[in-house]
Simulated assay, not measured.
Amino acid sequence: MLQGRAILVTGAARGLGAEIARSLAEKGADLVLADIAVEEGRAVAGQLGARFLPVDLGDPGSIAALGERLTGDGRCLHGLVNNGAIATGIGGISFDEIEIESWDRVMRVNVRGTWLMTRAVAPLLKLSGSGRIVNVASDTALWGAPKLMSYVASKGAVMSMTRSLARELGPDRIGVTAVAPGILTTESTGYVPEARHRLYAEGRAVPGPQGPDEITEVVAFLLSTGALTLTGQVLPVNNGFVFN
């Protein structure tokens, strides 16, 4: 499905990002992995025969440098998965208890980082003639999860950007979509209270936990040449916890 397609995955050192990378590698993609966690990211890249580039999504200079390195390769890019985001340690408090710096940091990484990464590699996606961008949002922005407002707001912004980017990049035949998972069973969600895991498991139309493999197959399709007609769509891939 993805044989020979060059794809960049951010936040690929662990959790869903690493699982997305593994799935894309199995399908023949030529991968570039990016993350702020250098050692973990290089380990995943080594396992998959992929290239690793360090990036700090909160630092515009770091993102620009990554784009310049890819441009310097003289190759096009067929896909971008904007998966990198901050989630750990920002929940469990009400909206009036959020510290301003914490709010700003979430917006810098989750919203501005997604925009700047897209801007940095858009010229390479245009060169391919069949570029695809998949933004990883969250279904928390669809049902309004409480005591997680900065994250919910950031992922709502990612959904809105997806629709706007789809219109701006559509003339270049670049498809832009978003997936909105619920809570997944990965090492990255160990901090989530058991009550929230139980809420999802019991509230899904298909009851039970959801593994990352149920997301990765959707992401892989959205990166394929056959997915252009879905551009601008936000897909709540959560086994029916939220319908869009």
Rank of each mutant, 00 (worst) to 15 (best):
V81A: 04
G67I: 03
A45P: 13
H78V: 03
F95P: 06
G58W: 02
D56N: 15
S128N: 03
D56T: 07
G15N: 07
A34P: 13
A34R: 03
D30H: 06
A50R: 03
A13Y: 14
D59A: 07
Q47E: 15
K27D: 13
R22K: 14
S128V: 04
N83Y: 00
L66P: 02
C76Y: 02
G49Y: 13
A18T: 09
K126V: 15
G67Y: 07
D30P: 02
L66Q: 02
L31A: 06
I63G: 07
G61T: 03
G79H: 14
M107Q: 15
A43P: 07
W115F: 14
A13I: 11
R69M: 08
G17P: 10
V121I: 10
G79P: 15
T88S: 01
G67C: 02
S130L: 01
L33V: 13
G11M: 03
T118W: 03
I36Y: 14
R119K: 15
V109E: 06
G28W: 01
V55C: 09
I93M: 09
P54S: 04
M107S: 08
G15V: 10
A12P: 14
R119F: 09
G46K: 00
S62Y: 07
G113C: 03
G72Q: 09
I36F: 13
T114E: 01
N135D: 01
A25N: 08
G15D: 02
R75S: 04
G91W: 01
R132P: 12
V44P: 09
G58H: 04
E97S: 09
R119A: 12
E26S: 15
T118A: 08
T71A: 13
R42L: 03
N82F: 01
T88P: 07
V55F: 01
S94R: 12
V136L: 00
E19M: 10
L125K: 14
V32K: 05
S94C: 03
D35V: 03
N82T: 05
R105F: 00
A122Y: 02
A85S: 14
L77I: 06
L57R: 10
L127V: 12
L70C: 13
A29V: 12
G11Y: 04
